[in-house]
Design a protein around this nucleic acid. Structure first.
Length: 479
RNA sequence: GGCGACGUGGCCGAGUGGCUAGGCAGAGGUCUGCAAAACCUCGUACAGCGGUUCGAUUCCGCUCGUCGCCUCCA
């Protein structure tokens, strides 16, 4: 398959380090607040990538970190007058809870920065020993000018950077470009013992340490949001490659930003929407479809109308599953079709083949989920068409229709969408509603449509749609 | 100032040197008492200006516009 590699700015054929195996490191959150929609995009996207790679036979190991010690966390803790560790713990727990609610499972390993202090200190020490970093005032800084490859990921040239010439208070860096790998602790800050006195990791070093620990030098894919390219990922590369001289990661994948009101969703702009709030109002799958509807590298506008559109797509899939189940339940199984049904069957068989091929081709092309989705909708149409023919013929090629449904379900699952019977099933409906439905039928029988509609309104108020089919009225749960 | 991306029909959003994206909304039709669901038909779009080409929305250049990064950020 092809993957766009930020490092080379090209789509490249994906060749893993070790045949059949893929190691992926994704930059997870810094836990100083609740996860917002923008944070959710990489989480969702890299889970799609993972499932896709597994579906084509790779053994995938995904590591997604949690940075639970950082300036932002300390800032927030000071602001709220609570220990930093408490802030980190609160939001780490919330992060697991909120993202789990997306129903996408978990990465294989989710290491915490604070659980890897020895590895981080060791990395810092080796950088100092190699002359790539230096200690001053209890902090350790990376000597950017000593690393020739600096800027290769972001395309930044060190001499062109617009940087603050003034060192911040307490910083005595040799060059403004240098960045902290270890920060001396100020009173009251969380700290760990180190050869340079009590301190804590700088931002960036935790990702280098943990990715190397869990995936090793030269692992396959490193991912995260575009906004991490510089300085975060650039610095990760510097820290790792300054020591080994070897490539740190082979492919760098970056998702585009979620925007809101045409601007990047970020706390500083004040246009964030929390994932937990979203999930109160929408099905998680609406968000997943919303993301899948555009290419992962493109910016994507988070808006009510765009979400409604995704919700409509979810409904379309759901209705298709409902129709398949209805037909399989109500039509007589008969693989020997003739006439109209035979023709529809042939078209469906063709659609199955085509969808399989198209979906695959789209995913192979740098995970073009929007194209893959389009392929799926083509299958939906063909399934619906077949269902109409089968329903009116009263016969169905159950094997064929079942294959179509399984293909649809399997591909949707790769994208992160699972549609279950309970999403539309009539089972478990309260007797009262069935009673109302019966009343409606009787009213319709005597052409008392006012009464029939009143009964339907009450059913709908209870959360069900009434769909009249050739086999009689059916109830379908509303979304 | 430097680096990078993008500008597609009413909206969202793929893609391509010549051949239907898809979804939503809209119009008409089929079915239906109505509705819902579904199916059928309908829109000939690619910011502007040049250039390359037999032919460009697709390649190149310029202009305009939007956005991201260069500071914390998914």
């Amino acid at each position: 398959m092809k993957i766009y590699n930020t490092l080379t700015r090209m789509k490249e054929e994906f060749v893993p380090r070790e045949e059949g195996k893929v190691g992926i490191y994704v930059c997870g959150p810094t836990v100083y607040g609740y996860v917002h929609i923008g944070n959710a995009r990489p989480y969702v996207f890299f889970s799609v990538l993972t499932r896709y790679l597994r579906s084509i036979g790779y053994e995938v190991n995904v590591v997604e970190n949690v940075t639970d010690v950082d300036d932002k966390i300390i800032e927030r803790a000071n602001h709220e007058c609570v220990p930093a560790a408490q802030v980190a713990e609160t939001y780490t727990r919330a992060y697991f809870k909120d993202t789990s609610a997306l129903g996408l499972g978990r990465p294989d390993t989710e290491p915490l920065a604070t659980g890897h202090i020895p590895e981080i200190v060791d990395l810092c020490r080796r950088l100092v020993d190699a002359g790539m970093a230096y200690e001053t005032g209890g902090s350790v800084y990376f000597r950017v000018e000593k690393f020739a490859g600096y800027g290769k990921l972001s395309g930044q040239k060190t001499d062109q950077m617009r940087h603050c010439e003034l060192a911040r208070e307490g910083e005595a860096k040799e060059s403004p470009l240098d960045f902290a790998v270890w920060k001396a602790a100020k009173p009251g800050e969380p700290s760990w013992e180190s050869p340079w006195g009590p301190g804590r990791p700088g931002w960036h070093i935790e990702c280098t340490a943990m990715s190397l620990k869990y995936l090793g030098e030269g692992f396959d894919i490193h991912g995260g949001g575009r906004d991490l390219i510089f300085p975060h990922h650039e610095n990760e590369i510097a820290q790792a490659e300054a020591l080994s001289g070897k490539d740190f990661a082979r492919y760098w994948m970056h998702n585009g930003m979620i925007t809101s009101r045409e601007e990047k969703m970020s706390k500083s702009v004040g246009n964030i929407f929390l994932l937990r709030e979203f999930l109160k109002n929408y099905d998680a799958r609406v968000l997943i479809l919303f993301f899948a509807g555009s290419h992962y590298r493109s910016p994507l506008e988070f808006s009510e109308s765009n979400l409604e559109e995704a919700a409509g797509q979810l409904d379309r899939f759901r209705n298709c599953f409902w129709k398949v189940d209805s037909v399989l339940a109500e039509a007589e199984a008969d693989a020997d079709a003739s006439g109209e049904l035979a023709r529809a069957g042939q078209e469906l068989a063709g659609a199955i083949e085509r969808t399989e091929k198209d979906f695959e081709a789209e995913m192979q092309e740098d995970l073009n989920t929007a194209g893959a989705l389009a392929a799926l909708f083509g299958l939906v149409r063909q399934i619906n068409e077949y269902a109409v023919a089968a329903s009116s013929a009263g016969r169905v090629d159950a094997g064929l229709l079942g294959r179509a449904r399984d293909l649809m379900a399997g591909q949707l699952e790769i994208l992160g969408i699972v549609i279950r019977e309970e999403d539309y099933a009539e089972t478990g409906v309260e007797a009262e509603l069935l009673e109302l439905l019966e009343q409606r039928e009787q009213a319709r029988g005597r052409k008392d449509f006012a009464a029939a509609d009143a009964a339907r309104d009450r059913i709908e108020a209870a959360g069900y749609e009434v769909r009249d089919t050739p086999q009689g009225p059916r109830l379908v749960k509303k979304t």
